[in-house]
């Protein structure tokens, strides 16, 4: 079993990633603030939990889900697989032949986002700060839906080979317009949820999907067209979270009137 040695090495590399952060925090605490942390022991235990927890999390993903997910992305984007589902063997594949790839992108975008630890952190914080009026679960589902739609649209872009920046600029325009109508208290959170969706769980799987597509479709360059899915995954949650806030506000108003 390679699990035990993997745990060891991944914990070590997580510690390596955390060292600069810890150095900055403790440096400022001792030399600038010059006051010990409240509950210092508890904080230390909490930090240890975070490091060990992340390591277990990463080892589990590397051992179980990533190899399978990456293989799946490759197989689903393989032209032979796509042709096998068609009645007549077409010479040239068009965008509508990629049905299962879109569905996979939708499903994997949603499900990996639900398990994303940074999003869990922000959702817990938002729930605490809003006094419970923003539910952690509702927020996470809204973000996950945004990522799901974003990634499948990103896949459509790679398949059709249309320029990335048209989509992103159009997305920006929608976000700016939505900002005028969304409840004020959700705006900061909505913008933040764009940045937190894509980290530990989502990036490796989504990158595999993008590279798989860009390397099997003729005329695509994996280095140029394989990128960009993450950008979609960071843009669409902004819209979906604002929409979620708008819908729940509308819902509360409507129920308020009928009572």
């Amino acid at each position: 079993m390679g699990f035990i040695s993997d745990i060891f090495w991944i914990t070590l590399s997580t510690v390596g990633d955390v060292v600069p952060i810890i150095a900055i925090i403790f440096g400022f605490q001792f030399f600038v603030i010059k006051r010990p942390f409240p509950n210092f022991k508890k904080v230390l235990i909490g930090m240890a939990y975070v490091i060990v927890g992340l390591s277990f999390f990463l080892v589990g993903l590397e051992e179980a889900l990533f190899p399978l997910g990456k293989l799946m992305a490759q197989q689903l984007t393989d032209p032979d697989f796509i042709r096998s589902g068609m009645k007549a063997a077409a010479e040239v594949l068009v965008w509508s032949d990629y049905t299962w790839v879109y569905i996979f992108a939708l499903a994997i975008g949603f499900s990996t986002t639900i398990a994303e630890p940074s999003l869990i952190a922000v959702a817990i914080m938002a729930n605490d700060v809003s006094g419970g009026s923003i539910s952690a679960r509702g927020l996470r589902i809204a973000v996950a839906l945004g990522v799901a739609i974003g990634i499948s649209l990103g896949v459509f872009r790679i398949v059709t080979g249309t320029p990335l920046h048209y989509y992103i600029i159009a997305g920006y325009i929608i976000v700016v317009i939505q900002t005028f109508y969304a409840p004020k208290m959700i705006i900061g959170l909505a913008y933040d949820s764009g940045g937190v969706t894509t980290s530990t769980v989502t990036v490796p799987l989504v990158a595999a999907l993008g590279l798989g597509l860009a390397s099997t479709i003729p005329g695509r360059n994996p280095l140029v067209d394989g990128f960009g899915l993450i950008a979609f995954a960071s843009l669409f949650p902004i819209m979906s979270v604002m929409m979620y806030a708008q819908l729940s506000e509308w819902w509360v108003n409507r129920n308020g009137k009928s009572n």
Binding site: M47, F57, L58, I120
Partner: peptide, 27 residues
Amino acid sequence: KVVVGIVFVMIGMSLFIRGLEMGLFPV
């Protein structure tokens, strides 16, 4: 291997969330 990996992910996630509330947020 997949099942063991999933158990690891579950343990890791629970520890991480506990650590967030004890360590990172308060800091």
